[in-house]
Write a protein that binds this DNA or RNA. Structure first.
Lengths: 376, 376
DNA sequence: CTGAAAGCGCTAACAT
DNA sequence: ATGTTAGCGCTTTCAG
């Protein structure tokens, strides 16, 4: 598969071919003009000359595209080793018309879920010989999106992965041309392009039902900036309430991505004794909410139950440990790359990949109006 | 699933985009006519033809390398817009030998400091028309490093930024050829290559002194995996102790990057009543340590003071709010790009950029053996 | 099987 | 200022 295999296939493949680039770089600063002939990296013609064969023949052993006499093959390999030759990916790509680049476009990159998803994509891509580039869309306004998309398109990536977790991501997806393979990554199923999903609607429904089953009369919701009018978490929450016959669905609180906003909301919620259960859009917001609640004198979970979403690494360390839903973002990213790969290959494979996050029950939720024994 | 194999009636599903990129390239050599024009991405020759000028003229308006008559210039621009033409970075690279790509290589990408630093690099790079790629070095073992470096080199980046926060990063840096501009990013000053730094040695020293000034007899240290034998945080801590005349510097506890490891250490520390102050390698570890301590019955900061490093967004939300040091990683990334830029330009600018993180005093540290009024 | 010839899409050198 | 002519380093016909 990987085109470089031909070279590395050689049993005594030289690990030095890595260092071949080192040439005398260090000292060149001052002198500046020693014999430049030595400097130039070897090209395929050099190999051909040294091996006494034609350029295409070298190419053949490189790519394995056609068979070559063992004899010549040996000589070529020897020449490659001697010169420390490495084929130029650029020249290759020019004729192949593929860049082996996967471009990721996202509204942000360092938030937990985003960073992990990108990590998954990168791992899968690298294993497959692809390079991944990152482009950030600062906001959903047109100029910002256009600039980012333009930057993205300039890279001529073989495939594009869009993190449509938020409005900038959605906006970017809508601006993408139809002639390049695209995969969308999100929490709810879209329609037009292949998509890798963590079924948060379903997960949110389970989580809300869990709270309801604990005996709470209703469940309030603090949501993170939704990707569209309503994201999966909100939908699942709403659905659970409706299914349980709750007609008066309380208006959700609107948080930002910053945990501190959860804290403010927590303080606000603390003023309303009728609130006994809160489902937060993610764990970090849940931490903020818990902080706001406790610093206002409400106990969690004795007075108010709070649950999060994602299973952030710190969720289990929080006090109380946060009940949440486990989102495997790394695996999500890998699935996305898989989808993209079949799309790039032009194969008709599945265009949709979904996984159901699992409920992780810890200590931040309990029956209403009761005290629970803090585990252990 | 959507297996509507009906030909082409469904307006929403775009089955063609999947196959469009297959473009019948194979047999196109001779025919090359009719609607082939629609399928193939426009190339510079198409623009030239449509604008009624020569190819180099188009190239000139593209690169701005030479002046072009306003008239022709307009026509070229119009043609570019009409065809939605984008120059092939690959073809350009082949001749100019510059890719406008900055490659980032790192041991990991989603940990707070890493993600933020990468974000800073990306922001600065994008603003300057560069694209950034990410390559992860899984571990410091030779094979892993060689593979990553090889992958990196294949990208033909104009410049490389190495996050040498950890052993894989350091190992990668050492394997990089000297003929491509490199900038290292870390917490301690290195020697050979340009480097952007957050002076953690100094910051750690201040933090430790802060604890000492509070009255603690000594300060224990939980360190995250060091980039080399000893990283800046550990050095600064040790220096502060020695400067204060403390001869018996306690052996540091070794944590992993995972906060859970801090928890285990916290439990361990809880067994030793002589420990009254702990300086943790980062905030997440501090959170783990605090958790381990409190679940073992020790109060923070009444019984034990714990401080972290980085000013993670959740540090202020933790209970108690964590005293730490503010590391501006985004700005660090931006400074790194700046250094790289001058290096790529071949200019001789500063090769080193340092910033001093500031102490952020919150609630997790207090004088030993006393109770502090939890703020408000 | 193998070499000669023909590009891939673009920019750099030359001529005007 | 602009068109012509050459490549960049590699893979792909296409003969033989």
């Amino acid at each position: 598969m990987t085109t470089t295999d031909a070279v590395s296939k050689d049993p005594d493949s030289t690990p030095e071919w890595l260092t071949s680039h080192i040439r005398d770089g260090r000292g060149r600063k001052r002198g500046a003009k020693i014999n430049d002939r030595q400097q130039r990296p070897p090209v395929i013609a050099d190999v051909a000359r040294l091996a006494g064969v034609s350029v295409p023949t070298v190419s053949r052993v490189l790519t394995g595209a056609a068979r070559v006499t063992p004899d010549k093959r040996e000589r070529v390999l020897a020449a490659i080793a001697e010169l420390n030759y490495r084929p130029s990916p650029t020249a290759r790509l020019l004729v192949t018309r593929r860049s082996r680049i996967i471009a990721v476009i996202a509204g942000q990159t360092s938030q937990y879920g985003y960073a992990e998803t990108i990590r998954g994509i990168e791992e899968a891509a690298r294993a497959d010989g692809y390079t991944v580039t990152i482009t950030v869309v600062e906001s959903a306004d047109e100029e910002s999106v256009d600039r980012a998309v333009s930057h993205l398109l300039d890279q001529r990536a073989d495939g594009i992965a869009v993190l449509k977790f938020d409005p900038p991501g959605v906006a970017a997806l809508n601006k993408l041309p139809a002639n390049v393979p695209v995969v969308a990554i999100s929490g709810v199923r879209g329609k037009s392009v292949p998509q890798a999903v963590l079924d948060e609607t379903h997960a949110a429904e389970s989580l809300t039902n869990y709270l309801l089953d604990l005996g709470h009369k209703t469940v309030h919701h603090v949501r993170v900036p939704p990707s569209r009018r309503e994201d999966g978490r909100t939908t699942g929450w709403r659905r659970a309430l409706k299914t349980s016959g709750i007609v008066d669905v309380p208006a959700p609180f609107e948080a930002t991505w910053h945990p501190e906003s959860g804290r403010l909301i927590g303080r606000e919620i603390a003023q309303d004794p009728s609130v006994t259960a809160v489902f937060c859009g993610n764990d970090e917001i849940a931490m903020g909410v818990i902080k706001g609640l406790t610093e206002s004198g409400r106990r969690v979970p004795e007075d108010v139950s709070v649950v999060g979403f994602d299973d952030h690494p710190l969720a289990r360390l929080w006090t109380p440990a946060i009940t949440t839903v486990d989102q495997n973002f790394v695996e999500l990213g890998k699935r996305a790359f898989g989808l993209l790969r079949t799309a790039m290959a032009g194969e008709s494979g599945p265009k949709f990949s979904s996984a159901l996050p699992e409920l992780v029950i810890r200590e931040s939720a309990a029956p209403p109006g009761e005290s629970v024994a803090s585990s252990e």
